[in-house]
């Protein structure tokens, strides 16, 4: 029986495949529906936040910063409540990371401000002496890609029923809605509105001028995203 398999490459390959595929079937498939249910208070990303998330990914921030707080006292003391599965329901892709060269950012929106981020991204060691993080000055001049963020919003709304323009239950019993524009120009307009709020708290004159002229530098989107991490 065994030798029969050993000299038949095709059936041998099938046997290998079954052996290795089995683990995936058992481990991964059955939890899918359950794990993707959002917790109360978790809302999808707005256009600007999503554009900021793309800036985060573009610069591989996740190579050094995790977004996963483990249930240990030392971690909850440092970063806040430990992570819940449903909090990640709208994260495509997930950004847990695998290395903490810098601190966790899962709830960074709770304890850092726009002003702090602006100074820190321009000169990390100037804000945190001894920091080994590179400066991200180019995000102050590069323009954020709102088009792609909007395209992604439409895609996930259609493909995965992400609840844009629908009431989302919040922790205090109220509801909120995340608006999704019905045209690209509408998306630009609403992203710009959000950007103006962020830029109002910033000091960099070039960034302020750009936003006043209807353009959104990457740093503004990035800060909007990080402020949304709570």
């Amino acid at each position: 029986m065994f030798h029969w398999l050993e000299k038949r490459p095709f059936f041998f390959a099938v046997a290998v495949f079954v052996t290795i595929a089995f683990a995936g079937l058992i481990e991964i498939l059955p939890n899918f529906a359950q794990a993707s249910r959002p917790t109360i208070g978790t809302a999808p990303y707005s256009t600007l936040e999503l554009a900021g998330r793309h800036v985060y990914i573009k610069n591989s921030c996740n190579a050094c910063h995790s977004q996963l707080i483990r249930p240990f006292k030392a971690e909850t003391d440092r970063y806040g409540h430990y992570s819940l599965s449903g909090e990640y329901a709208y994260d495509r892709p997930f950004l847990w990371g695998s290395k903490r060269t810098g601190p966790d950012l899962m709830r960074v929106g709770n304890y850092r401000t726009t002003d702090w981020h602006e100074n820190h991204m321009w000169d990390p060691a100037g804000v945190v002496p001894g920091s080994i993080m590179p400066a991200y000055k180019w995000t102050f001049t590069n323009i954020a890609d709102v088009d792609t963020a909007y395209a992604e919003q439409i895609t996930i709304k259609n493909a995965f029923n992400v609840p844009y323009n629908k009431p989302i239950p919040m922790k205090d019993g109220s509801t909120t809605t995340v608006a999704l524009a019905d045209s690209l120009s509408g998306a630009h307009a609403s992203a710009l509105e959000e950007a103006k709020v962020v830029a109002a708290d910033m000091k960099n004159q070039n960034v302020k001028d750009a936003v006043a002229n209807g353009q959104i530098p990457e740093i503004v989107a990035l800060i909007a995203y990080m402020n949304s991490l709570k």
């Binding site: 991964i28 994260d91 892709p93 992604e152 895609t155």
Partner: peptide
């Protein structure tokens, strides 16, 4: 996303079919 949204944004961009914890598990 370019094709799913009818031609908006970067042509090479895509979005994962899995979200959050599921995405982490598959990854």
């Amino acid at each position: 996303t370019y094709f799913a949204s009818g031609g908006i944004g970067a042509w090479y961009h895509s979005v994962s079919m899995y979200s959050g914890t599921n995405d982490a598990l598959v990854q």
